[in-house]
Design a binder for these strands. Structure first.
Length: 376
RNA sequence: GGGGAGAUACCAAAGUGGCCAACUGGGGCAGACUGUAACUCUGCUGGCGCACGCCUUCGUAGGUUCGAAUCCUGCUCUCCCCA
C-alpha cells in the first residue's frame, strides 16, 4: 500500500494525501463509513458508492466471525465479493468489541476469551487467529488486535494494558508477515497506539508502534468518554512521533468538529458510527449545524433537508417529511437520515482536502467548527 | 320493557377508606448516542413554585368519616344479556 502526500497546510498539521490500494485510490483526509456486519446500516452499496461517494468502508472481525462465519465468507470469495463492494475495506480486529462486551470477556496473555452475544458460545481471539480471520475476510487494511482501554482508566491499568497490546502487536505482525493473502490482492496491517489519556504512555506506545515499519498507523482508545481536549492532546502527542510519510487513522472518531480538529492535527483517516446511528435516532449533521429532526419545531417545516446538500435526499425530501418518518419509526426515515449524514461526512472531508490543497484550510476550518456545533 | 356491568389524567388501564397527583403501557415533549449486541436508551408528561411545598383533580350533585378515586343516595351517560 502506497501513501503519497499531495499538500501540507501551512498553519496546521493538516495533510492531503493519496492512499493506493489494489481496490483503488483513497483521497485523504477520509471518513470511512462503518459497516460492521458487512452492511453500512440503512444504505445499500449503490447509494454508498454513487451518492455518499464512500471510498472505503469498515467491517468488523468479531461480528463477521460470529455471523455469517469465516466459512461462508471464504466460500463467497472474500468480503468484497460477498457484499459486492469493489472499493477498499478495512476490518477492525474485534479489540473494541472485547472492550465493549466487557461482561463476557476475560483477557489473558494468549488472547481474549469471550462468549458470543448471539448464542453464548465460547471463543478465543488471539493476535494470530485474528490475522487469519482477517486474511479470510480479505480486508485491504487489517487492524492489530489490541485492548481498547475504558475511560476513566487508572495509570497502572493503562500501562499494563498498553504493554499487553504491544506484546500482541509483536505476535500479530509475525503472523501477518508469514501468511499470504487468499484472493490475489495485497493486504496491509496497521498497528494501534494505546495509552489512555497519559502522555508518557502515549509517547511510549507511539514510539513502540513506529518502530515497526508498516504502511499506516492507528490511534486507538480515544473518544471513549474522555473530555475532547484530552483527546486532542493525545492526538498531538502521538502524531509528533508517528512517521510523517504514513497515513494515520484515528479510530472511532467522531463528530464533524472532532474530525476537523483531528485533520488539523495531522490525522488522515476516520471512522465513526455517529452519522448512521445518530441519524437513525433523528440527528442530522448539516453545514449550518445539528438538527434534531424529531423536535416539534420541524413538524410543519416543508423546506428541503438541506439547501445545496451533498446527497440527493437533501433536495428531494422536506424536514417535515423526514420528521414524520423518524417519529413513525419508518425504515425509510433511517435510510434517508443515514444517506444524508454519510454524504455530509464525506463532503466534509473532501472539502477539507480541497481546502488543504488550495491553502485555505485553517480559516475555513475555523468557520466550520463554529457552525458545526450549533444546535438548530 | 326486564336484568347486569361500568364511568380514573391525551388514549388504554391499575387502584376499591389514609403509604394517591394516583401503578403500567401507548401517545406527546425533551435529552443521550464517537474502532455499532443500538429503528436503541434515559428523563419529563394536572397547575404554581419547579429543593421542601402549596393548590385543584378520579362522570355529576349531595352525604357518611378525623380522612374518600375508593363507602352510601340521587342524577346523567356508556356497554352487555334477555325479551
Amino acid at each position: 500500500m502506497e501513501f503519497e502526500i499531495n499538500a501540507l497546510d501551512s498553519h496546521s498539521k493538516a495533510r492531503a494525501g493519496t492512499v493506493e490500494t489494489d481496490h483503488g485510490q483513497i483521497n485523504t483526509p477520509i471518513f470511512m463509513p462503518v459497516g460492521t456486519v458487512g452492511s453500512v446500516k440503512g444504505v445499500n452499496q449503490r447509494d454508498l458508492l454513487n451518492d455518499v461517494k464512500a471510498q472505503i468502508i469498515l467491517g468488523n472481525t468479531y461480528h463477521l466471525f460470529l455471523r455469517p462465519g469465516v466459512e461462508t465468507i471464504e466460500l463467497a470469495g472474500g468480503l468484497h465479493k460477498f457484499i459486492n463492494w469493489d472499493k477498499p475495506i478495512l476490518t477492525d480486529s474485534g479489540g473494541y468489541q472485547v472492550f465493549s462486551l466487557a461482561e463476557n470477556r476475560k483477557l489473558k496473555e494468549d488472547g481474549a476469551h469471550f462468549s458470543s452475544h448471539i448464542d453464548g458460545s465460547k471463543h478465543i481471539f488471539t493476535p494470530e487467529n485474528v490475522v487469519n480471520i482477517q486474511r479470510i475476510i480479505g480486508a485491504d487494511i487489517i487492524m492489530a488486535f489490541d485492548e481498547c482501554t475504558p475511560y476513566p482508566c487508572d495509570y497502572t491499568y493503562a500501562k499494563n494494558s498498553m504493554h499487553l497490546t504491544h506484546r500482541w502487536l509483536e505476535r500479530g505482525i509475525k503472523q501477518f508477515d508469514k501468511t499470504e493473502p487468499l484472493y490475489g490482492y495485497k493486504q496491509t496491517y496497521f498497528p494501534i497506539v494505546q495509552g489512555s489519556v497519559y502522555k508518557d504512555l502515549r509517547i511510549e506506545s507511539a514510539k513502540t508502534i513506529a518502530s515497526y515499519e508498516r504502511d499506516g498507523y492507528a490511534i486507538g482508545g480515544l473518544s471513549v468518554g474522555e473530555p475532547v481536549e484530552e483527546m486532542y492532546d493525545m492526538i498531538e502527542v502521538v502524531n509528533e512521533i508517528l512517521p510523517q510519510n504514513k497515513p494515520r487513522y484515528l479510530m472511532g472518531v467522531g463528530t464533524p468538529v472532532n474530525i476537523l480538529e483531528g485533520i488539523a492535527r495531522g490525522v488522515d483517516m476516520f471512522d465513526c458510527v455517529m452519522p448512521t446511528r445518530n441519524g437513525r435516532n433523528g440527528m442530522l449533521f448539516t453545514r449550518e449545524g445539528i438538527i434534531n429532526i424529531k423536535n416539534v419545531k420541524w413538524k410543519n417545516n416543508f423546506s428541503p433537508l438541506e439547501e445545496n446538500g451533498a446527497s440527493f435526499v437533501d433536495e428531494k425530501f422536506s424536514k417535515a417529511y423526514l420528521r414524520h418518518l423518524i417519529v413513525s419509526k419508518e425504515i425509510l426515515g433511517a435510510q434517508i437520515a443515514s444517506l444524508h449524514n454519510l454524504s455530509f461526512y464525506l463532503w466534509l472531508v473532501t472539502e477539507a482536502r480541497n481546502k488543504i490543497i488550495d491553502g485555505s484550510f485553517s480559516s475555513w476550518k475555523k468557520e466550520m467548527v463554529k457552525k458545526l456545533a450549533v444546535r438548530l
